[in-house]
């Protein structure tokens, strides 16, 4: 057991070190979130817009950065390992792939959450935008729930990307659609009803609803329902992930498709 924990920690450490030297990582956690925050705050602070909307500008860019690093790094990570020729090797070690990915995804989450630092700073110094009514405790719990949902999604998507390279391409193309469905920068309530139905199957949507509720005294505050929905959906993804890993293991050994052929 202790060697498994050590393996996961080692994967975490290596993924962090590779990230620190990769310019793409900075694009995802620093540059994109800042650019989105800028557009978001300009649009949301247009003359006549309600002040309560500003929270979406303050936090939206950070949430986008957090999400992007969490899922994109996972996907790119697998692709990089494939190009490197190391995917085959981490597959052939006596440590299950899921343990290695556990470490890598944890690294992504820790790196991704850093996105909030530059974006909140930009909101404060550039736009004098603040969150005066934050319910710190519930905000923190909601962020924790969101992290768990990102973790579950990243862990589920990574084997998916390992199996089907085009899945990564598709999700990459749908990137901004995810921002819409999860309500990163505006409430899901404003989008078309059928799209809200889809959004409700995504765990982060519920966690983000709770996060924004914790920044304001207005509106509904059904924290427990939202947290529960996010956690239940995440657990559901993890069950799916379990079968996906079984499939990866089997499929990869059938086709020998781990090398860059």
């Amino acid at each position: 057991m202790s060697t498994l924990i050590r393996a996961a920690f080692s994967a975490f450490r290596v993924s962090m070190r590779l990230r620190v030297v990769s310019p793409y990582a900075y694009l995802n956690w620093l540059v994109f979130p800042l650019l989105f925050t800028t557009v978001g705050l300009y649009v949301l602070s247009r003359p006549g817009a309600p002040v309560s909307h500003l929270a979406y500008g303050v936090l939206g860019g950070g949430l986008i950065g957090y999400w992007t690093v969490a899922y994109l790094d996972g996907g790119n990570g697998i692709q990089d390992e494939r190009w490197n020729g190391t995917l085959e090797q981490i597959f052939a070690v006596p440590t299950p792939l899921v343990v290695i990915l556990f470490g890598k995804v944890t690294g992504s989450l820790l790196f991704g959450i850093l996105s909030f630092i530059p974006t909140v700073a930009l909101a404060y110094f550039g736009f004098h935008a603040l969150l005066p009514h934050v319910d710190a405790l519930r905000f923190a719990i909601s962020l924790g729930v969101l992290s768990f949902s990102f973790f579950a999604i990243a862990l589920t998507l990574t084997p998916l990307f390992a199996l089907w390279r085009w899945a990564f391409q598709m999700l990459n193309g749908f990137e901004l659609g995810v921002y819409v469905l999860c309500g990163f920068m505006f409430p899901v309530a404003i989008i078309a009803p059928w799209a809200q139905g889809i959004a409700d199957t995504l765990a982060p949507t519920w966690a983000i609803r709770a996060i924004y509720a914790a920044t304001t005294t207005e509106g509904a505050h059904d924290y427990f329902t939202w947290w529960l929905a996010a956690i239940a959906l995440s657990l559901g993804y993890l069950v799916g992930a379990y079968f996906l890993y079984r499939l990866v293991e089997k499929h990869a050994r059938m086709s020998g498709d781990l090398a860059l052929a």
Binding site: T3, A7, A11, R13, T95, I100
Partner: peptide, 10 residues
Amino acid sequence: RYFADLYRIP
């Protein structure tokens, strides 16, 4: 070091 850990060597 990384692969030693993945090979679960103490």
